[in-house]
Write a protein that binds this DNA or RNA. Structure first.
Lengths: 361, 361
DNA sequence: TCCATTTGTGCAATCGATAGCATGAATTCC
DNA sequence: GGAATTCATGCTATCGATTGCACAAATGGA
């Protein structure tokens, strides 16, 4: 019953069509088929049309594996991504997939998650001869970086700085941290705290350091340093600890290294009966969607993910073309989003509409 | 300066090592190298050790593209996944990646998101000669299914039923819906509502239909049908609508087709001053992590994602081995999680500890 | 009318790894 | 000690697509 719907190379069953079988069927040489399908001007229009018609009639699909064997490029980009439970990585993944498709690249999903990358996994980058590699994991994947360097695979990192090798595109985390510090200080907060993410993640360090430096420069005591991992659970635990402090020592403003942490902090504070922002202001950083909506309406600095990925892919493409280029670090400015999770300075009070009023960071 | 760290085929710069260059260097034939590296017993232990040492010394990596050209299998699995902003898909992605690595498969990330799949994207499944395909998108990707069938590519769907072709692994959504209905009815709710997801998604339909049927069977009026898309925004809008209803007509129990919807409903209800579960009970389905923690502590039916993926990969593997097998539909039972978002029947009241007390659905 | 181009195709090698078959050497058996 | 194996390895074709080069036909000019 399936016979009619089944078409196969040379009319036999089960085999896929190849340039060779198409050539036999069309009565030409394989090279002619190849050239015709690639619109080589040396093939006469009639032959080209005839072969194109035949190919689409039988549903021929070129074998990219064979093509890349001779051509040298696989069309594959290795993708290493952080834990996608974090909405930031989810957004990055989504955008990376659609942008890669636009450029005709396919993504080899090498790793997703918080853990380190296994050797066997990292090896697949070479085994499949990826043309480039995109890393968005905060965890330092030194193994992948090393492999890429040793084998001349272009490497671009997003949302983290490159420590040894490769280019990177990142949000200007220091500027964002300073901006948030300025916001809280101007709103009259006096006892501040920072909630840090993972100790080895550049984003967390840059954000909290810049925040602390700015606070100190404003003449306030150095912020209390809390946290130490980038998760809702850590934010929640930190929020509980803050809520347990006496009213006299408790910070009145908390800056979190990520929206994920900020959501945890807010959840814990509210669970303990504290009001945000009336009792404590909480600000985050990333601008992920769940943090911008109910029940958080977080004041945060949004990363320009679209621009970041576009730049990252540009960097990759340049290097994939073989032009030797030095590694670059591209910083893009984030966008301050005034939500309802932090008291505002008097001069901004009119702007306090969640997700509506924004200003450049 | 980089010279020392740079190693390449045949000692020339820039070229990667191949079996041929290794063979020349070792003074043997290419086939010997190939066999030695694959632990062919016909190669003498000495030669094998010598070649293995050389290969690891120069960092040889086999070209999988070339291997699959002759071997017929690429080791690639095509992955089509739904919008990973939804924590359910994020969890599925994460688990799929690690499980695939365990089996030595690599994932070609074909599509991620809610939109339909473009032809060019779907074609890459054939171009890269994927050995199989895993679909977890609720959106009916008929194009991919058609392509897979026409080309004999094994296809397994997770979290949705197969409409035309391919096997499927899913949570028993009807049983889950009935279980939630039973829970709400026994807890004394009388005016119920369901919030549906996308109109074309099998999971949403099965869950809400079974819920409604069970409610009616219990002698209560048919639940109010709300919603119509699987998003937090739709849940929120529905929650607002429910909150706006008069106290006499407002449902006292709401069953949502997903945790994402349930979170939106809870957020809106609370924003409007209603208490959950004191004023209204809300239950969801999926068991995603954000719904289980503060501030939701949702009562829900958790999908056994690990088991589902394991079964899905088993199904794929069987069919990839070439053994012809009929399509299967595998249903796995979900796990009821008693949170704090719904009033409990009297006989279960002691079990109301979030995320702790569970029972099979 | 004959040679020099231009134009369209075919032949054969190539990419890297694998597998069937052949070959030479080492071993065993009677 | 010679023949029959066993064993280790080499030679070569193969997978599917691409590409340099050769070659034939068609066209042009003188």
């Amino acid at each position: 019953m399936e016979m009619a719907g089944r078409s196969s190379g040379d009319g036999e069953t089960g085999e896929r069509w190849t340039v060779a079988s198409l050539a036999r069927r069309a009565g030409v040489a394989a090279s002619t088929v190849s050239r015709a399908l690639r619109d080589d001007p040396r093939i006469s229009p009639e032959v080209r049309a005839r072969i194109a018609a035949l190919a689409s009639e039988v549903g021929y699909t070129p074998n990219v594996l064979a093509r890349s064997l001779v051509g040298g490029r696989s069309g594959l980009i290795g993708l290493v991504i952080g834990p996608v439970e974090n909405p930031l990585y989810a957004a990055l993944l989504q955008k990376a997939v659609s942008r890669a498709a636009l450029r005709g690249w396919r993504l080899l999903l090498v790793h997703a998650g918080a853990g380190p990358i296994e050797q066997a996994t990292a090896d697949s980058l070479l085994q499949y001869r990826v043309d480039g590699c995109l890393i968005t994991s905060a965890q330092l994947p030194s193994r992948v970086a090393t492999i890429c360097r040793a084998n001349g695979v272009p490497l671009v990192m997003v949302n983290r700085v490159a420590w040894e090798h490769g280019s990177a595109v990142s949000c200007d985390n220091r500027a964002g941290g300073a901006l948030l510090a300025d916001l809280l200080v101007r709103a009259g907060h006096r006892r501040l705290a920072v909630v840090r993410g993972g100790p080895a993640t550049s984003t967390s360090l840059e954000r909290t350091e810049a925040f602390a430096a700015h606070v100190v420069a404003a003449g306030l005591p150095a912020p209390l340093v809390l946290g130490g991992a980038n998760s809702h659970a850590m934010g929640y635990a930190t929020g509980e600890a803050v809520a347990a402090m006496g009213a006299g020592e408790r910070p009145d403003g908390v800056m979190c290294a990520s929206d994920l942490l900020a959501m945890g902090v807010v959840d814990a504070l509210r669970e303990r009966g504290l009001r945000v922002p009336d009792d404590i202001s909480v600000v985050g950083m990333d601008g992920t969607e769940p943090a911008l909506r109910a029940p958080y309406y977080l004041t945060t600095v949004a990363q320009p993910l679209d621009d970041m990925l576009e730049r990252a892919f540009d960097l990759l493409q340049d290097r994939m073309r073989g032009v030797p280029r030095a590694d670059e670090l591209v910083l893009l400015r984030g966008e301050l989003i005034l939500g309802r999770s932090a008291r505002l300075p008097a001069d901004l009070a009119g702007d306090a509409f969640p997700g509506q009023s924004r200003m450049d960071a």
